[in-house]
Structure formats: structure tokens, C-alpha cells
Design a protein around this nucleic acid. Structure first.
Lengths: 140, 140
DNA sequence: CCGCATCCGGAGCGATACTG
DNA sequence: CAGTATCGCTCCGGATGCGG
């Protein structure tokens, strides 16, 4: 067995590749750029992806560029103008990652239901009670 | 447009669902349990998934159970015996998540190559140049 | 054997201010 | 406009110990 084919090994390379996508924002940036031939500016992405901070968007884009998923084109002008688009490699990732999105949308209700059912049958620890209260408060 | 269908909104539910999978370990646990009718014990998973700690495995399994992805069965005995398996809902997630794994394995080399190329062509910012100069001076 | 509680160091992330 | 630098805090995650 080749070393990278056993995804359960910590040193496995495909696990590292998987790790690229397993963060909060990469998938969302992919969705924002998935339209073919669509390039977007930094501020466009910032607006479209609700909740992301400048810092995280910058960081995510840099990582994605580093991994060959997005292309960054700078138009030297004042004010600066930078456009982001998916590379061919990035485009190949759209399909599997969109499947994930579809799954999320389709099974959303089942997950919600499972949570409710779980909460009912479960003994809630004091810590979790506090945590959920804090969460509720934060949503205001 | 329904509120949960716009994944770019922070309040969007499908984004929360997506978040379930976007962590380090959930995907790997899925892979470990993907064989149909295969149930595994805690310690089996701990051994199979290289690099995971007891705490994280426990936490991941609890979250997955909470979201209806895995089923936990306790056999009251001494020593305790607990078996984990995928729920029907969890089984539906196998396909999209396996697509992701396949992508990782197939495009592994391209990502690696992109990284190397990126490191070579990288422009070093003025700040980094200054920083390295300062560092050199400080070493005297 | 399974897994939770606790502690603690360090990474992650947001907010703000600044530059070209 | 498109970022980077810095600070401050939170929370992740590992190590350990305990309890069933």
C-alpha cells in the first residue's frame, strides 16, 4: 500500500490535502467563485460571504492561492484592483464540494430533528446548559 | 429565496450543517465507519485513526451522535463495551464525503506542485525584508 | 475498557489602525 | 481598494486523573 493511500495515517498526504478544505471558509469562497469565468474582487467576496472578516478572507485566499486553487491577478492602478478566480485545479474541486453543499441543504431538516430528539433524551450537563444560555445571549 | 438556501448568510442553517463536517476529524471517522454494517468500538477507532486523541475522538463522536450521524450502543458489562455505527442519515453522507477523499487522492500531486511553484515565485514583502535584516543585526 | 472533568499552553480569530 | 501589523482574548486541543 502506498503511503499516501492510507488516509488514516497522520503522515498521509491526502489527509493534508483534505485538511485544506476542512476549515470554516474555504468551501464558502469556492461557492462564491464557482460560476465559470467569474472573477471577483476582494471587497465583493467580503460582502458576499456574510460574517467573514477581512483578515480571514485574506488568509483563506492566500492559502487557496498557495495550494493552486485560486488565481490572483493584480491590476496595477490607483486605487488597486485585484481579481480572484478559480484555477483549473480549483474547478475540479467544485463538483465534490458542491455535492457536500447539496447534502447539507437536503438533509438539513433531518439533522435539526436529530438534534431536538437528542436533546430531549439526553441528560444535559451543567456546562452545556451554561454554554447554550451563553449562545442564546450572544445571538441577541 | 428561502432563508436557508442562501449559504452565504451567516444565519443560514445549511452553513451550520456544513460546519459539522468542516472539522479535522469528522470526515475521518466517517471513513472509518463507512463499511456497511460495520460497527467499531471506541478503542478500534482510536487505533485506526492515527493521531487523534481520546478527547477529540470522544468529542467528535458525541457531536456526530448529536447530529444523527452515528449510533452509539452500550452493552452493559464489565468491562464496558460500546459500539459505534453509522445511522441511515450518516450513510447518505458517505457518498459526497468519499468524493472529497477521492479528489484529495487524485489531485494530491497537483497541490504539492502548486505549493512548490508558489514558494519559488513568491515576492517577499518589504516588511519581511526589513524583518530579516533586523534579525541579522540582532544576532551580532 | 470507555469516557468525562479539569487544567493549561498555544493557536486562531476579531477589532482596530495603518500603508501603498 | 486591498491588504498587513499588532493586540487581546477566546477556545481548541493535549495531558492527566478519575469514575463507572
Amino acid at each position: 500500500m502506498q503511503p499516501h493511500s492510507n488516509i488514516f495515517l497522520a503522515t498521509c498526504t491526502s489527509r493534508q490535502v483534505l485538511h485544506l478544505i476542512a476549515d470554516q471558509w474555504t468551501a464558502l469562497v469556492m461557492y462564491a467563485l464557482e460560476d465559470k469565468d467569474s472573477t471577483k474582487r476582494f471587497s465583493q467576496l467580503l460582502t458576499q460571504i456574510d460574517g467573514i472578516s477581512k483578515k480571514m478572507l485574506s488568509q483563506t485566499l492566500r492559502d487557496m492561492e498557495r495550494n493552486g486553487l485560486v488565481q490572483r491577478v493584480v491590476y496595477p492602478a490607483v486605487p488597486p484592483h485585484v481579481e480572484y478566480s478559480l484555477t483549473p485545479l480549483g474547478q475540479t474541486l467544485i463538483e465534490p464540494i458542491t455535492a457536500l453543499r447539496k447534502w447539507a441543504e437536503e438533509h438539513l431538516d433531518e439533522v435539526k430533528e436529530a438534534r431536538i430528539k437528542h436533546n430531549q433524551t439526553e441528560h444535559i450537563s451543567i456546562q452545556e446548559q451554561v454554554a447554550s444560555l451563553v449562545q442564546q445571549r450572544e445571538q441577541h
